[in-house]
Nucleic acid binder design. Structure first.
Length: 1139
RNA sequence: AGUCUCGUAGCUCAGUUGGUUAGAGCGCUACACUGAUAAUGUAGAGGUCCGCGGUUCAAAUCCGCGCGAGACUACCA
């Protein structure tokens, strides 16, 4: 006996996924999907490492689905797709988590808890949830190698990072410098941008602002300013007056227009000339000033006058005063270096004329932009040399107080009142300074100003921007490379790469690598105390050689890595050592001149960890050298992460790769949007709208979840996650596909179809078969293109549309009788083969997105026919597009037939005539003879579908007077021809009478006068449609018109009754649980009228209901009473024992 | 604050190089169809295509300015 197709009572996507998952595990399908492609071209994929100390969320399901879709697709295309999972194990989120758990703060590390213990706690915490992550990964069917993941804290991984850093060092890309970083004086610690971007960090505060007069050194000014008869001042505005003592430059915009204004200081009434941006004169001189136009009214000013007069003199560009000098505003101290370069006018791109004066007070020790622009112009920051600390210090200490070198009354005071722990003085430093500057005639304006300012999330006090020592990668040196390499990357969507990422690259700053934390990769640089000698370590072998030197010189007692054997690449060897703090901090090395060298205490930015994964995941170049050098696993063909990674992982991958090998790290990158809740709000635990992915998977299974996420919105757009959408996908797409299979299985099993018969040539098959195959191959082409273009959304929509509309709702519905009626003929075999082939192809097309259900479908189909040698759909090959099966005229015909049918249904509805009631004839008016011909071929189909006996054509002529035509201008064609007279032409054409239209149709052209000249309009330039036919029930749509003869004669009426009866009997059969093939004995008791209908159609009724006998008007014992055609009839269905 | 993305029916989304009656699905109402159907068909209700200007004979579509949502980057004095 041949095998049967599996039949199911119901669709259980969840159960299906569980079984398939088991099957994959049992048969090692994932590994086979890679090994079976041995020797084929590689499709290289990099998986971004998640941090395993947090629980996975629904957005991870999204991200992992996208990754999985393309890896599976390319496997199906025959490529070999390795994919290694990874874990991000270092960094601040992990440290913060541990601190919270242990209930400690950063300052406690090294005191309450040793660094060693702290790091052990981090290491333990970081892999805590790996089991849950693995479970999710399995459940959603994300195929990735979880057995051999790369883990950023592994010694091998760190060794590669050190090697890369050394390469950068040798290229001169690594340097130590100071930068301005967010700093919390109250907490005594620097803050990361991550901490700064925590919700609520930015708050509105009100500051005292001063518009300050900086007195120009006249000899340094250009001629036209030099010759002014009084003192000239630059006006600059500041929101942080306490930084004025650290001012070393003023920044202007090169191309901004400035002007010099003659006026009086509003506090001292001294006559002054002030320079500011021309467009801001009105704003700065808004209150208490009035413009005057001549010298005399200006010079006659007395301080009793209500308004201070001002007069703008000559204007000029910023570049004209570039390099001019000014007197130090608060001459308390001088910078210890290059003081001669201080106090000059420099230019910066960040200067705007939206606020202030267009001249920016620049204090390089306390502003990020200030430091950058000052450095570019070689202007020194205000730093003093501290003899005790042997280092340069700014005028404010790490507590936030002015240092002792600052004169009274400011010395020792906190720069912001918020920093006082107890009672703050009545007047803040800012206010005191404002008073001081007013008294010496250097304050031009003092105002309160409200703006948003970042606060420390721990102390809730405003942060300070403060210079801190850091190690940098000179990414700016590789900017040109990075920009041009980026142009070769295919970004999806394009705008992320071109705009967001492109602009970011254009405005690149050097990469600050330093993190003064505990749990991370230590910077492998050792330095002597005088900073004259330094050594960078690029491998463990190198480190051990250096340690041994140091031990010999007596600097260290013993080698802490004594157990390590250089050159032995085994995991055991590498597991024996730990390269984290505090162990590496205890290592002292010896410099070439015999001095002791200590490690630079910083850790490196965790983004460097993940950005180096193309190399570090393979322990390059210590192992797997050929994988990278021969380009087998580098660069990636594809990566995908959230759009928030643009400046994160996408950037660090790109930067490291560009600088190391002048190559891209990835060729195609998809940045996916966010998963929002159904109201478009971001999901967060605090809002309580976060969705537990396990719950969703439990409810709907992975396939529906994946399909919903992919098909609902394009991956790069945000998705509003609504679980009712998943349910809809399950019902509509999976439900329909399942039902189609169930239908196939039911009848294939009855007929014993198992694809043993010879392949029926497609040309020999029926119209419907050829049509669905043609549509299928159009689908294959579309789906391939969409997957290839990284647009899975369009692929899934096309598949669902095909399955629901073309396959289930049209092909199967119209073919039903072919399957359950008649003998096992060639036509029936062709139908089975067609449906089988279509379902088979659909299983493959859907496999990347719905891996479990597709597997079930594929296996249920193939295990009976044994036509495929593969154990899994994921080991098979993607369907090829076959041009020869495309029959576009047939597709058009079928489309017309569908439209016609739907029009007839509409008419029946209008006339209240059931589809079961046969009608005599249908008339069709086609707009062209070509159309007419194609409809002809569809007659049988349409007759069956809409239940009419005959179809005739109505020609324009025969229809004659019946038709009312409507003429509409074709704007696309006529628009360019008539231009602005279009409105007139449109008016004329749409007011044509029936007679005029007929004339036009006959003659083919119409002439009209436009602006005195004769213009000709042809029939091709208008659309004529038909409105109605007198005395007929008619409908018209897309140029097709149908008319339905709604007269029902007696014969038709009886036939309708018979069909109605068949339907009732079928329902009874089903209700009684009869098999489709069971034969019955049918008995009916009804009125004479119904009996007559039955008698006339007895053969038909018996055939369709599988009735061996039909008896009428007999006394029936156990019968169903049915409301039927306005009466109650009694029907009995009895199963026959044989048959 | 800047940069980028988005804004079409109650909801989720289509809408080609600009062409005059803006579509589909879900949901709602009514009726039908069905021996594969948690499916489907027909009809109805449902729109200021975010707003305002501009370009054009013609704008949901192109341009400008706003408004709103989101992301990223940030004390631009």
């Amino acid at each position: 006996m041949s095998k049967k197709f599996e039949e199911y009572s119901q669709l259980h996507l969840n159960e299906c996924a569980r079984e398939i998952s088991e099957y994959w595990k049992r048969n090692d399908i994932f590994n086979k999907s890679i090994s079976s492609r041995q020797g084929k071209s590689h499709y290289v994929f990099y998986d971004g490492p998640p941090s395993a100390n947090g629980l996975p969320g629904i957005h991870h399901v999204m991200a992992r689905t996208i990754k999985d879709v393309f890896c599976r697709y390319h496997t199906l295309k025959g490529e070999q797709v390795y994919r290694k999972a990874g874990w991000d194990t270092h960094g601040l989120p992990i440290e913060l988590g541990v601190e919270k758990e242990l209930n400690i703060i950063k300052e406690d590390i090294g005191k309450k808890i040793s660094v060693d213990e702290y790091n052990k706690a981090c290491r333990a915490s970081v892999m805590r949830y790996t089991d849950i992550w693995k479970e999710l990964t399995d459940k959603i069917g994300y195929w990735v190698d979880q057995e051999n993941p790369y883990i950023t804290y592994d010694s091998k991984y760190i060794e590669t990072l050190w090697w890369i850093l050394k390469q950068f060092y040798l290229k001169g890309l690594l340097y130590k410098g100071y930068t301005i970083q967010p700093y919390s004086p109250a907490a005594g610690t620097g803050l990361s941008t991550h901490e700064l971007n925590m919700p609520g960090a930015y708050k509105e505060i009100t500051d005292t602002t001063i518009t300050v007069q900086f007195k120009a050194r006249k000899e340094s000014l250009p001629e036209f300013l030099k010759n002014l008869p009084g003192e000239v001042y630059f006006l600059a505005w500041t929101t942080t007056p306490w930084t004025l003592s650290s001012n070393t430059a003023l920044t202007i915009g090169d191309s901004i227009e400035y002007t010099v204004v003659q006026t009086f200081n509003p506090y001292t009434f001294e006559p002054v000339y002030v320079i500011l941006a021309k467009s801001l004169v009105q704003k700065v001189f808004s209150e208490g000033f009035s413009p005057v136009s001549n010298k005399i009214s200006l010079e006659s000013f007395k301080k009793e006058d209500k308004k201070i007069p001002y007069r703008a003199l000559q204007s000029f560009y910023g570049s004209d005063i570039l390099g001019s000098r000014y007197e130090q505003l608060l001459p308390w101290v001088l910078p210890y270096e290059n003081a001669e370069n201080a106090f000059q006018i420099i230019s910066g791109a960040f200067v705007t004329t939206e606020e202030g004066t267009g001249i920016v007070h620049t204090a390089p020790t306390f502003g990020v932009d200030d430091a950058i622009v000052a450095k570019r112009h070689n202007v020194p920051p205000m730093l003093l040399w501290d003899v005790q600390k042997k280092q340069a210090v700014p005028l404010v200490d790490t507590q936030g107080r002015f240092i002792k070198e600052v004169p009274e009354p400011f010395s020792g005071r906190y720069v912001r009142n918020e920093y006082y722990k107890d009672k703050a003085p009545e007047r803040s430093v800012d206010v005191e300074l404002a008073i001081l500057l007013k008294s010496i005639g250097r304050a031009f304006k003092v105002e309160k100003y409200k703006h948003s300012y970042p606060h420390c999330w721990r102390t809730d006090k405003p942060i300070l921007y403060y210079p801190l020592d850091s190690w940098f990668i000179r990414t700016t040196a590789a900017k040109a490379d990075m920009v041009s390499l980026n142009n070769s990357i295919h970004w999806i969507p394009e705008s992320t790469g071109k705009n967001r990422f492109g602009h970011w690259l254009e405005n690149l700053n050097d990469w600050n690598l330093s993190r003064s934390r505990y749990w991370g990769v230590p910077l492998p640089i050792w330095r002597t105390e005088d900073e004259q000698e330094e050594l960078i370590i690029g491998s463990l072998a190198e480190l051990i050689t250096e340690i041994e030197k140091s031990v010999r010189a007596g600097l260290m007692k013993k080698n802490p890595f004594g157990a390590f054997v250089p050159g032995d690449m085994s995991w055991e060897n590498y597991k024996a050592i730990d390269l984290h703090k505090p162990i590496v901090d205890d290592i002292l090395l010896i410099s070439p001149t015999g001095k002791s060298m200590k490690r630079e205490s910083d850790l490196i930015d965790v983004w460097f960890d993940s950005g180096a994964m193309p190399f570090a995941q393979w322990h390059y170049p210590f192992e797997n050298k050929e994988k990278i050098d021969q380009g087998k696993f580098y660069s990636a063909d594809f990566i995908a992460e959230g759009v928030d990674q643009t400046r994160g992982w996408f950037y660090t991958l790109h930067a490291i790769s560009s600088m190391l090998f002048q190559s891209v790290a990835y060729k195609n990158v998809l940045s996916n949007g966010l998963v929002l809740d159904k109201n478009g709000q971001k999901m967060s635990k605090s809002k309580g709208n976060a969705i537990n992915p396990f719950k969703i998977l439990e409810l709907y299974g992975p396939d529906a979840t994946r399909w919903y996420m992919i098909s609902n919105a394009q991956p790069w757009e945000n998705i509003k996650f609504d679980i009712s959408g998943i349910d809809e996908v399950r019902r509509k797409f999976f439900g329909t596909l399942y039902n189609t299979y169930a239908f196939f299985a039911l009848y294939a099993n009855i007929d014993g179809f198992c694809y043993k018969e010879a392949f029926v040539e497609v040309a020999q098959r029926s119209e419907l078969d050829r049509w669905i195959l043609s549509e299928l191959h159009q689908l294959i082409k579309k789906v391939r293109n969409h997957y290839d273009a990284y647009d899975p959304t369009r692929a899934t929509r096309a598949i669902a549309d095909f399955v629901i509309n073309d396959l289930s709702n049209w092909y199967v519905r119209l073919c039903r009788r072919r399957f359950w009626k008649g003998d096992y003929t060639q036509d029936k075999i062709a139908a089975y083969q067609t449906l089988y082939d279509v379902l088979f192809s659909v299983s493959l097309l859907s496999a990347p997105v719905a891996p479990f259900f597709s597997e079930r479908l594929y296996m249920d189909l193939t295990c009976v026919t044994e036509k495929e040698a593969f154990e899994s759909v994921h080991l098979a090959y993607f369907p090829e597009f076959d041009e020869k099966l495309i029959d576009e005229p047939l597709e058009r015909r079928m489309h017309i037939a569908q439209r016609l049918s739907s029009m007839v249904f509409s008419l029946r509805k209008k006339e209240n005539i059931k589809v079961r009631q046969p009608l005599k004839q249908l008339m069709i008016l086609a707009s062209s003879s070509e159309e007419e011909k194609s409809v002809c071929a569809m007659f049988d189909l349409i007759k069956q579908e809409v239940n009419v006996k005959e179809i005739h054509f109505l020609t324009s002529d025969t229809a004659g007077e019946l038709l009312t035509r409507e003429l509409r201008p074709n704007f696309k064609k006529l628009g360019p021809k008539f231009g602005k007279h279009m409105l007139f032409v449109s008016h004329v054409l749409s007011h044509f009478s029936q007679e005029q239209i007929r004339q036009f149709e006959k003659q083919g052209i119409f002439t009209l006068k436009v602006q005195g000249s004769q213009k000709v309009i042809s029939l091709q330039e208008v659309d004529i449609s038909i409105r109605k036919v007198k005395g007929w029930s008619i409908d018209t749509h897309e140029g097709l018109t149908v008319a339905l003869d709604i007269n029902i004669d007696e014969k038709l009426r009886y036939e309708g009754i018979a069909r109605e009866l068949v339907n009732r009997v079928q329902n009874l059969r089903k209700a009684q649980g009869l098999e489709v093939t069971d034969k019955i004995k049918l008995s009916i008791s009804a009125s004479l009228e119904v009996e007559k209908a039955i008698k006339l159609n007895k053969e038909y009724i018996c055939e369709d209901t599988l009735s061996a006998s039909l008896s009428l008007n007999t006394y029936i014992n156990e019968a169903e009473e049915i409301d039927f055609e306005g009466e109650t009839i009694r029907v009995s269905v009895q199963k026959l024992a044989y048959g």
